[in-house]
Nucleic acid binder design. Structure first.
Length: 258
DNA sequence: CCCTATGTTCCCAA
DNA sequence: CTTGGGAACATAGG
């Protein structure tokens, strides 16, 4: 469910409520998640996002790393209001607790010694067209699959890959190695514009995404192609199509994405 | 029963 | 060894 804008939203919201707070208790309700012990009394020194992973940094140097995968959510409870359905894990801190809610049970939590080194570059931090073009040289996979590969760009998922390619006017099936310099420039620009607006909107609540405080995001108002199969393109006279690419629903306008 | 779902990892064939 | 694609993971909903 959550991609870069959604995880960034949680990251910023968590910073506002748990920086400096002390860990009181960690509860593991789903045995599939490994138990994390020995953090009682540790204080939170910061919250960072690396790709789609959330890092809660502790003063002792360790980081609690949460990955929400497909259906994970975080919910802040200032007071104990009980566990909502599908609560898998919870951290109680001095000002309140964070619930990890995850129907499909793909989410992971782990304790990392220090900073996790992720290979992919952050699309919002120093992304250049030349850099991308070099990474894509000799890659015959479709550009959409390239954008989804977290070892290249860290944070883009299925919704935003579709939206970025529409905004850039490029077909999801173009081979990554065939894009021109000008097209990579359009991708970099579209990536920044789409992700920054989505962050400002606190994510896309097309189905069940909610932020840390249970509020819906607003970016669904700005979606140009995702979940719009059969509807008119907002930029040309085309009709939005949906096809599968590597098993993922892929929305695009055949008329203006070349 | 079928298909779908905002992600990642493993396995296999080319 | 590399690359790309499909299945698996687990659950709910249409």
């Amino acid at each position: 469910m959550p991609e870069l804008p959604e995880v960034e939203t949680l990251c910023r919201q968590l910073r506002g409520v748990i920086c400096g707070a002390q860990v009181q208790e960690i509860q593991t309700l789903d045995p599939k998640l490994g138990k994390i012990k020995g953090l009682e009394g540790e204080s939170v020194s910061g919250v960072e996002r690396l790709g789609k992973a959330l890092h809660i940094r502790l003063a002792g140097g360790l980081s609690l790393v949460i990955h929400l995968r497909m259906s994970g959510r975080l919910l802040w409870q200032q007071e104990d209001q009980g566990f909502t359905p599908h609560t898998r894990w919870a951290v109680s801190l001095s000002p309140g607790r964070i619930l990890l809610i995850d129907p499909r049970r793909f989410a992971t939590v782990a304790l990392w010694p220090g900073l996790c080194n992720s290979k992919g570059i952050d699309p919002l931090n120093g992304l250049t067209p030349l850099q991308l073009q070099e990474m894509a040289s000799n890659r015959r996979l479709p550009i959409k699959s390239f954008l989804l590969d977290q070892s290249h760009l860290a944070g883009i998922g299925n919704i935003y890959a579709c939206e970025i390619l529409h905004r850039a006017g490029i077909s999801p099936w173009r081979k990554a190695q065939d894009l021109t310099r000008a097209e990579w420039e359009r991708i970099v620009g579209a990536t920044r514009e789409v992700l920054e607006r989505a962050i400002a909107c606190r994510g896309t609540s097309i189905s069940d995404w909610r932020d840390l405080f249970g509020e819906r995001g607003e970016y669904q108002r700005y979606l140009q192609v995702y979940a719009r199969e059969g509807e008119g393109c907002k930029r040309c006279k085309g009709v939005i199509q949906r096809r599968k690419l590597n098993g993922r629903g892929t929305y695009y306008c055949p008329a203006c994405q070349k």
